[in-house]
Simulated scan of single mutants.
Amino acid sequence: MSDAQLLLEAHGEDAMVACGVRLGRALQPGVVVHLQGDLGMGKTTLSRGVMRAFGHRGAVKSPTYTLVEPYEFGELTVYHFDLYRLGDPEELEFMGIRDYFSSHAICLVEWPARGEGILPPADLVINIERKDSGRQLQLSACTAEGLAVLGRLRAAA
């Protein structure tokens, strides 16, 4: 496995949240994370862990119908996108999608392929698959920022 990839495993919901907390602690403003995996693989559960890393204690639900849910943490906003029900990528233009992706925000995008051609490229892609009774998360860095996230994850292990 190269420096641009990292494998994590999670066995159960609590372990997936813990992976999200670990990831959240490694993220910096300006990072775009694409979350890929079939329905029920734990993308939203992982996102809940990311929010907990920043101090959020409330519910984190998938913004399937609203497309985006903002979480404010002082100067930082984490935007959680779920594009599962997106009919056409052009709809993202109408909602002002480019305004969300700033150097002061972290963007977590579930079902990013549905926004292809409109979404900015990912710094980090996380593919979640079933492995035995748990999940395997393959993290792939796509940019220098993504490599830095993987470096911080490795250093914190």
Rank of each mutant, 00 (worst) to 15 (best):
S2K: 12
R154C: 06
L124C: 04
R85S: 05
S140R: 15
L8A: 03
H56L: 00
L8K: 04
E75F: 02
A141K: 00
L8V: 09
L35M: 04
L46W: 11
E69K: 03
E13C: 11
R98V: 14
L147K: 15
K61C: 07
A113H: 11
R98P: 03
E116A: 14
S102D: 08
Y79G: 12
A18F: 01
G40R: 08
V31D: 03
S103T: 00
D123L: 00
G146M: 13
P89Q: 01
D82C: 04
E93P: 05
G24V: 10
P29C: 12
D3Q: 14
T45Y: 08
G96K: 04
P70L: 02
I106Y: 13
V68S: 15
G24T: 07
A15P: 00
L92T: 09
G20V: 15
R152A: 15
R114E: 03
G30F: 05
L137R: 14
G115I: 13
R152C: 03
Q5K: 13
S103D: 15
M51K: 06
G151L: 08
L153S: 10
K61Q: 06
E69I: 12
L23A: 08
P121L: 06
L83V: 13
Q136N: 00
V32G: 01
L23Y: 02
M41K: 01
N127S: 10
A10P: 00
E13F: 13
N127K: 15
A156N: 07
G151E: 13
Q138H: 12
Y65S: 06
E75N: 11
V109L: 09
L35G: 07
Y71W: 13
R135L: 08
A156G: 12
A122I: 07
L83M: 07
N127V: 14
D123R: 01
P120L: 13
R135F: 12
Y79V: 10
G12L: 03
H104Q: 15
Y100S: 06
G58Q: 08
S47L: 02
E75W: 02
L76V: 10
V17I: 15
S62V: 14
V109A: 06
T77Y: 11
